[in-house]
Design a protein around this nucleic acid. Sequence first.
DNA 1: ATGAAAGCGCTAACAT
DNA 2: ATGTTAGCGCTTTCAT
Lengths: 344, 344
Amino acid sequence: MASRVTIGDVARRSGVHAGTVSRALNERTAGQVNSVTRARIQQAARELGYVPNILARGLITDTSASIGVLVPDLTNPLFPPIVRGIESVLTPRGYTALIVNTDSDDLKERAAFDSLLGRRVDGFIIATGHSEHPLLRQAHERSIRVVTVNRGSPDAPFPLVTADNAEGMAAVVRHLLAHGHRHIVHLAGPPGMMTSRIRAETFRTLTRDLPHVRAEVVQLAGLAIADGHAAATTILATDDSPTALVATNDLVAIGALRAAREAGVDCPGALSITGFNDIPLSGDLDPALSTVRIPHFEMGVHAARLLLDELSGSVAGGGSPVTVTLPVEFIARRSSGPAPVRDR
Amino acid sequence: MASRVTIGDVARRSGVHAGTVSRALNERTAGQVNSVTRARIQQAARELGYVPNILARGLITDTSASIGVLVPDLTNPLFPPIVRGIESVLTPRGYTALIVNTDSDDLKERAAFDSLLGRRVDGFIIATGHSEHPLLRQAHERSIRVVTVNRGSPDAPFPLVTADNAEGMAAVVRHLLAHGHRHIVHLAGPPGMMTSRIRAETFRTLTRDLPHVRAEVVQLAGLAIADGHAAATTILATDDSPTALVATNDLVAIGALRAAREAGVDCPGALSITGFNDIPLSGDLDPALSTVRIPHFEMGVHAARLLLDELSGSVAGGGSPVTVTLPVEFIARRSSGPAPVRDR
DNA sequence: ATGAAAGCGCTAACAT
DNA sequence: ATGTTAGCGCTTTCAT
C-alpha cells in the first residue's frame, strides 16, 4: 500500500534528473535550483501526490527524525500532558515521537529501548520515576542522546527536567502550619521513586525540630488510591490522629478522602488533606482537593527542547548536564483549612 | 549516534557474507543456514551488540512495521486505554504505534496523516469521533489500510470497532424507568460525534410514546464539564425539573453533579444522574457516578487485530467491511436511584 | 549452504 | 544550474 510514487516518478514527469528533484524539494537545497524548474517539479510532485520517503532519506542522512519516548503508563494522567508537550515541539520540527509504555518494568523498558534503537531513533526522552537504572549508564557509554524527565541519573550524566518538588512540598507545609496544624502525617510513596523521595525528604527537613509540632512519615507500598485509603483508615482509627494528612500524590489523597468519609471524619473541618500533581478532576472531588500543580506540559516541552539542542550539537558536550527545574504552584481548595480549634 | 554496527560488521566478525548473516538472523530464513554457522553468527551479533536497522529493511520489503494511530487528544482519559490495547497486540508482533493527536482539527489530522504516510506506515487506526471526513474517502481511493474506532465511515468502507452505545443507553433508560422515573432529560452531545448521536437517537427511540413518561433531549455544544454544568443549572432552575438526568458522557455528568450540589438538589435523593464511559475516578466522586463502562482497551485490541489481519491479506477484500461491536456494562453506583416518591 | 550482485528511495559529492 | 554516480543497510534473486 501507501504512496508508491517515488522521486523518480516526479523526475520523469518534470523532465529532470532525480537529483534535481531531491534538491528542489528540500528546504535547505531548494535555492540551488532554478526557480522555474523548481516550480515545475513542485507542480509535478503535487499532481502525483508525491510524499518523500523519510525512511529512505534517513538511511543516507543517518537520522530517522524520530524520538523514542519511554513512559511508565499512558493511562496514568500525569503522562499524557507531558507527551503532548513533547509533541508540541517535536512535530513542528518534523520529528515524530515514538511513545512506548514500560509499566515500570525493567524488561519491558529494555525491550522497548532496543526496539526503538532498531528504528534508529535520534534520541530518547525517558519519563520514568525510578531513580536508578543500568540502562541509562549503558546508553551513556554508547553515547546515545537521552533526556530524562523526573528521574535523576546518578549513573549517567544526562540532562534532567523536573518539577520543583521540594518547593511544592514546602508550600504544602507552610500552608498547613499557617493554618494552625501541629500534628501532621505525610503519606509517602516508595523511596525508589525519585519524586516521592524528594517530597518525603523535604517534609522531614522542614518539620524537624519545630517546637510544638508533631510530624510523622508513613511509608506506602504503592501510589494508588487503595494505598492511601488503607493507610488513612489505620491512622484515623488511632486515638490520637493528626489534623492534617499530606499525601505524596493525588490518588493517595483521594484514598484518604474516602477513608475520612467512611470514618465519619469531617474534611476539612476535622481533618485537612492535601495532594500532589493536580490531576484532572481533582477540583471536582468532594471536597475539592488542595494540591500542588505541576507543569506537566511544560516539562515535556523543555525535555524535547533539550534533546533537540543536543542533537543539533548546539550544546557544549563537555560540562555537567543541564537540570531544568520548573516551578510548581500550590492550589488551595476545600480539602484543607484551619486546624480544629481544640487542637491548636 | 545509535548502534553503528551493521550487518557487514557481523559478517566480517563471523567470517561469512552479509547475505548469510541476514538469512541467519531472520526467523523466516534461519532454516536455510547451517546451524553451526548460525550459532557463530548469532554469537558475533550479540558480542557486537548488533541491532538490525528496521528502516533499511523496510526499504526493500516495503514495510515499516509501524502503524499510524490518530487520536483526538491523549489527554482525554478515553484514549490512553485504547492506545494501550492497540500496543498490546502490535508490540508482540514487532510493530510500533505512531501516535498522533489531531485535536479533532481537520488540518492537523491531514498533516498528521501525510506525515505518517511519509514514514510509510503500513496502515492507520483512526480513533476519532467525527462521523464524516473526506480524508477517509481519499485514503480508500489510494487503497490505504485503515481501521476506524468509534466513527463509522459513510464515505469509505473501512472496518469499524465500536462499543454498543445503543445497548448502553438502553440499559440506562431501563434502569431509570425501573426506578420509577417518569420525567427524564438527556444531555446530548454534538450530533457530529458518532457516539453522541447514537446515544441520543437511542434515548429518543426508547422513550418515545411511553405512556406517562416525559423525556426530553437537550443538545450541548460540547462535551466538557462546563457544558454539563451550564445545561444542568438551567434545567434545575425550572419549576418543573426532571427527576433524572442522563448525560452523554461522564464529564457532562460531573458538571451536572456539580450543578445539583450548588442548587442544593439532593443527588440521588431528589435527582438521579447517570454518565457514560466510566472514566477513572468516576467511582470516587461524591456521589459515585452511575455510568456505562466501555471496553476501551479491548476496542484497541480489536482495532489492531483487524488492521493486522488486513495487512496480512488474510481477509477477504471483497465484501462489506467488518464492524465489531463490543459489549458495554451499566455500572449502578450511588448517583442514581429511585425517583422521589412525590413524582412517581 | 553460502557467496555475489542487484536494488529499495533517497541524498551528496563530484562533474559539467 | 543540472546531470552522474555512488552508496546508506538491508534483503533477495541467482549462482555456485
